[in-house]
Write a protein that binds this DNA or RNA. Structure first.
Length: 508
RNA sequence: GCCGCGUUGGUCAAGGGGUUAAGACGCCUCCCUUUCACGGAGGAAUCACGGGUUCGAAUCCCGUACGUGGUACCA
């Protein structure tokens, strides 16, 4: 048996959205689970929609996600070229072959003539008229024109396309790994263009030819392709034989809060839809990515994997290795799933807690530096990050949750302190400063013990005092344990902060 | 319109003839902590509708509704 070969075939026309990443992921998981190869092939047959930089962008996203292709335009491989535009010539011969065998025909209709036909035949019951078995005999093609006329047009290099000739009233069925038996009536499928006037193949011809040439064994794609699957099945039958056709799986769609997930939804509801930042070179419009929003790649992969799939147990947190081990295409859902940003954030929080901080420390450091906070001591940075990691959902949260470890507070939560402040407290903290000054061992237990001892002496409830101390050190009522903070920022800085706050608080 | 695919709490979902119909996110209450989280204990909330088949249907069948995709010389 030949090795499992699975391909992801993006068309570089913009950012890589959630559905796209999940399609790659499932392809990748399946390939790796079965010890096969994961191939990335670029579908750039539509030059008008091709966007400069998009191909490189796709590979950057894959890299960030931890998906390394075995074969691709970037990684090489023995089934190249991996860009459809680079194999343009070979598609024509397959199209010609189909015409010769009577499975396809030349069509000379101009775009204007096509539009006219669709307009003329349009009715309320049939708003979108197809070029199909019912209409093709009224059009200008090698089925209706005399052979000599066809030859003449061809010899004169008249612009033309090649269309598949859908058979009459045949049931085309195939087995989908997710949907099981799916069938269509061939009379209801239109005569799709196979080869465009510019000589480029359409997706329909290209996938089939490429999958054959690259010996693809499994093909997983979005459900939006299900409707055109009968064309592909027929092409396989005509060209290479159904026995060589890859096994199909049509993945359910990822939906937005209202219907299909779109770039608009992201803007409207405030969540990313692309893996990484994408700037459209035509409009210069920037769409924020999950990476830049502060997601960990592990979380991103995880949340996508369980959107439409689960392993049947209660486990929800999976690493890439676990996913490869547990994944099974049969357990992928049939129905589309709505993307829930709240749950997405939860996955990120879980991964922030789960992973050692050193994994994402460089990224967090960048966030600090972007806010003009220089981190000179990486070891201290690690310590602080560990102290606050479980209260961070997205990476930028680390800044808000830990900035006080690096900067002396400039403002205080006066509303919290004022009602509790009195002469007794002033007296307490003044004496506390002296005591702390004399404390030789600046470590958590000692700092706390010293504090508690004085509260007992002064007969003040320690709770209120701790809250005030916190505001003195942090500025607000947040963060890890007060004494933990005091220990971390050091004796000198702690005393500084207490004294600085004391000046302000004593005016209350 | 036609064709395809789908439908278990607000969301993700387990379950595929007999269950008190799991679990997670979110929401609410309480505990922990006189901070914010984490953690812990509870709570509200579901089988789209109508017909069958069956002793018995969330599970099987048929309709309807709704959603979604396609209906391009786009992928």
């Amino acid at each position: 048996m030949s090795k499992v070969r699975v391909r992801f075939a993006p068309s570089p026309t913009g950012g890589l959205h959630l559905g796209g990443v999940r399609t790659v992921l499932f392809n990748y998981l399946f390939a790796k689970k079965h010890g096969g190869d994961f191939i990335v092939r670029i579908e750039d047959t539509d030059q008008t929609r091709f966007v400069a930089g998009a191909e490189e962008y796709i590979f950057e996203c894959l890299k960030w996600c931890g998906i390394e292709p075995d074969e691709s335009p970037l990684h090489g491989g023995s089934y190249g070229p991996y860009r459809q535009s680079e194999r343009k010539e070979s598609y024509r011969q397959y199209a010609e072959q189909l015409v010769k065998d009577g499975f396809a025909y030349y069509a000379f209709d101009t775009p204007g003539e096509l539009e006219k036909m669709r307009n003329d035949l349009k009715t309320a019951e049939n708003p979108s008229v197809q070029y199909d078995i019912r209409t093709r005999m009224q059009m200008k093609n090698s089925l209706t024109l005399p052979a000599v006329e066809v030859k003449k047009l061809l010899d004169e290099n008249t612009r033309h396309v090649v269309r598949i000739k859908m058979p009459e009233d045949e049931t085309i069925s195939f087995t989908d790994m997710i949907h099981h038996e799916v069938s269509f009536n061939s009379s209801l499928v239109d005569d799709k263009v196979l080869l465009k006037a510019d000589g480029m193949p359409t997706y329909h011809l290209a996938v089939v030819v490429d999958d054959y040439l690259m010996q693809i064994t499994h093909a997983f794609r979005g459900e939006e392709w299900l409707s055109s699957a009968p064309v592909h099945v027929l092409l396989w039958k005509y060209l290479f034989g159904l026995d060589k056709m890859p096994k199909w799986a049509h993945l359910p769609l990822i939906l937005g809060p209202s219907g299909k997930l779109s770039k608009r939804d992201g803007a409207k509801y405030g969540f990313p839809v692309f893996a990484m930042n994408w700037t459209d070179p035509k409009t210069n419009e920037l769409t924020e990515g999950f990476k830049e929003k502060g997601f960990l790649p592990e979380a991103f992969i995880n949340l996508l994997a369980v959107l439409g799939w689960n392993d049947g147990t209660e486990q929800e947190i999976f690493s890439m290795d676990e996913l490869i081990e547990r994944f099974s295409i049969e357990r992928v859902h049939k129905a589309g799933a709505k993307f829930d940003f709240e749950k997405a954030k939860w996955f990120n929080q879980e991964w922030i807690k789960k992973l050692p901080v050193t994994n994402y420390q460089p990224g967090v450091k960048e966030i600090f530096e972007a806010k003009s906070v220089t981190i000179s001591d990486d070891e201290y940075f690690t310590k602080v990050l560990n102290l606050v990691k479980e209260r961070c959902v997205l990476l930028p949260d680390f800044y808000d949750q830990s900035i006080f470890f690096f900067k002396t507070p400039v403002a205080y939560d006066e509303a919290a302190v004022k009602p509790k402040w009195d002469a007794g407290k002033l007296n307490f903290f003044t004496e506390m400063v002296t005591r702390y000054n004399n404390l030789t061992e600046w470590e958590i237990e000692a700092i706390e013990a010293e504090f508690k001892a004085l509260t007992t002496e002064k007969n003040i409830k320690p709770g209120e005092l701790q809250m005030i101390l916190r505001v003195m050190l942090v500025g607000t009522k947040m963060g890890p344990g007060v004494f933990v903070i005091a220990e971390a920022i050091g004796k000198e800085e702690s005393l500084n902060r207490i004294q600085k706050a004391l000046i302000i608080f004593s005016t209350f």
